[in-house]
Design a protein around this nucleic acid. Sequence first.
DNA 1: CCATTAATTTAGAACGATCTAAATTGCGCA
DNA 2: TGCGCAATTTAGATCGTTCTAAATTAATGG
Lengths: 337, 337
Amino acid sequence: MKKSRVTLGEVARVAGVSRATVSLVVRKSPLVADHTREKVQQVMADLDYVRDIGAARLRNNSSRTIGVIVPNLVNSFFTEFLSGIERVMGEDDRVVLLANSHDDPARQTLILQRFRGHGVDGVILCPAEGTDPELPLRMRQWGLPLVQSLREVGGNVTDYAGADYIGGVRLAMRHLVERGHRRIAFLSVSARTSARAERLEGFSRAIAETGAEDAGIVEAELSWEGAARSARQLLELDSSPSAVLCFNDVLAAGLMLGLRRAGHEPGRDIAVVGLDDLPLAELTYPPLTSIAMIPENIGAAAARLLARRLLQPDVEIERSIIAPSLMIRDSSGYHAG
Amino acid sequence: MKKSRVTLGEVARVAGVSRATVSLVVRKSPLVADHTREKVQQVMADLDYVRDIGAARLRNNSSRTIGVIVPNLVNSFFTEFLSGIERVMGEDDRVVLLANSHDDPARQTLILQRFRGHGVDGVILCPAEGTDPELPLRMRQWGLPLVQSLREVGGNVTDYAGADYIGGVRLAMRHLVERGHRRIAFLSVSARTSARAERLEGFSRAIAETGAEDAGIVEAELSWEGAARSARQLLELDSSPSAVLCFNDVLAAGLMLGLRRAGHEPGRDIAVVGLDDLPLAELTYPPLTSIAMIPENIGAAAARLLARRLLQPDVEIERSIIAPSLMIRDSSGYHAG
DNA sequence: CCATTAATTTAGAACGATCTAAATTGCGCA
DNA sequence: TGCGCAATTTAGATCGTTCTAAATTAATGG
């Protein structure tokens, strides 16, 4: 029942060479003669040899494993992001350790310790809300390469991959203004993350640039239910906005639900625009105008940044920012008079 | 810049004991005297010692790592499933290696080799479409514990965690029949998986049980776009169904879109019911009646099955089937005369 | 105070790979 | 044939932990 693993030594014995030679073959070294290589490869295939990467790492310090920490696995934004990471790392024969911080810094710390124990080569982190800004420095002291993504703490001290939310918000606002909207509200969230800060920054800049009126900022819990509840607050704003830009598509979808419940038809009585362009955006009613960020690409970019740093630990830090694009659908269809 | 890891040996030296003793402390053995334990723990904390699990596994054969392979990371069904696995494994201080097979058996095989190389303790697999039914046996020969989930190949030879789709379809069909529907169609998918077979089985059983008319089975590509395109075929069925039960919520949402485009109002002109009850179901218009399967719980169940088998490798195989429940919303609101 | 037994602690060999440094083999050419 | 140099191959130490078996220390009873 128990299987004894086939080891380098076995292969060496059967092939009639030394362990060291087999090791060279495994690592595709050019030092080994062609006929030896072929013989060894044949034996490896026959015995179904699988190299033990853990044992290898003990000696050469590369586990070909990276850790990814996301705050959430329900929002498909994060899972597409994850998908991009997994794809790029897989192409490079690396493997992904996944963990969910649930946006809890304590849990995030625990996970990082666990990852350290498993000897990951590096980490892609979307920092939990309330993460200690010193964390990147601490990780540097641990000698653990870090790429931050989607959110960022500690100033520009690590590689970073993200979306251009300032530009994205600008696109959305211009679109609304072109459709004649003057009083635009923003549906934000209560969680203090850099992602939130960036969007708010984008909003105020866009207000300045377009000359539209800041019709108010309302905070909701980050869930469609929360957004639905906030519909009332938005409708009761003194400024009576004709359009609402939302923190993300989940909130936008929830808001549309809440508006309809309150007797206002989104896309006709009031324009709603989301951010992220989740698959969901096509399926709401009316279909949601949104800003595509293509999280899969952000994940891929983060993975490439990390791969690059593993290769050259001391290369200067880089930021990889994915450009947004406007997806016009019916929820912004209303042309304000 | 380079950090030399703090090892057991360092801790031992500083604490003035042997490596073996420190190892006992790390593993919380009761064999060590209280005062020694405290001293050692103090030193471990001071030096920021992190146990190298890879090195440990080399000796004791437990990596506290499990592999998970899903066919897809976009459908939130799978990501919630994943979330359940990650949660339960995390509670047990285990770590999850994630990979996406993209429903491709060749890639799946590659991933399994990779996982083997990383010394995973076990695997939770949602088999790709077209997986060799012999795979579970092969994995047994490798000595790699396997839990299948959501889909299954090779007969009942491994632990399995899934949802009761036969029961779920029954719930949905009864609901429709209670609302007066007699001619019910099924929107299926082309991919041949056990998940599909089970739902079709449920459909034909429910037809028999309820005495409703099988108004036809239409196959769509597994995407909302595919489902939208299939609306036409459904509407052109000779049987002119008054209700459509869909393979899952993504198809249901796409179908509703297609129906509306074709001038038929879902929930009023024709009832639509989904399966899975994704978060999405609340956000479509009209909100989608669906059968909740709670993928997070299925993932948790799969994780527990695997944890149990790791503890007792020879315990008899077990099936863990999550019971479905009916979530009534507006898309089935139409009461056929 | 010594013999036993129980409670702690430990030296040293694993685990499966890689690295270093040195040994061996083969080849061209005098 | 024999020498020098490049091309291959290898012995043995090593990575950080756990295991085995034995050694040491403490505790108990007579």
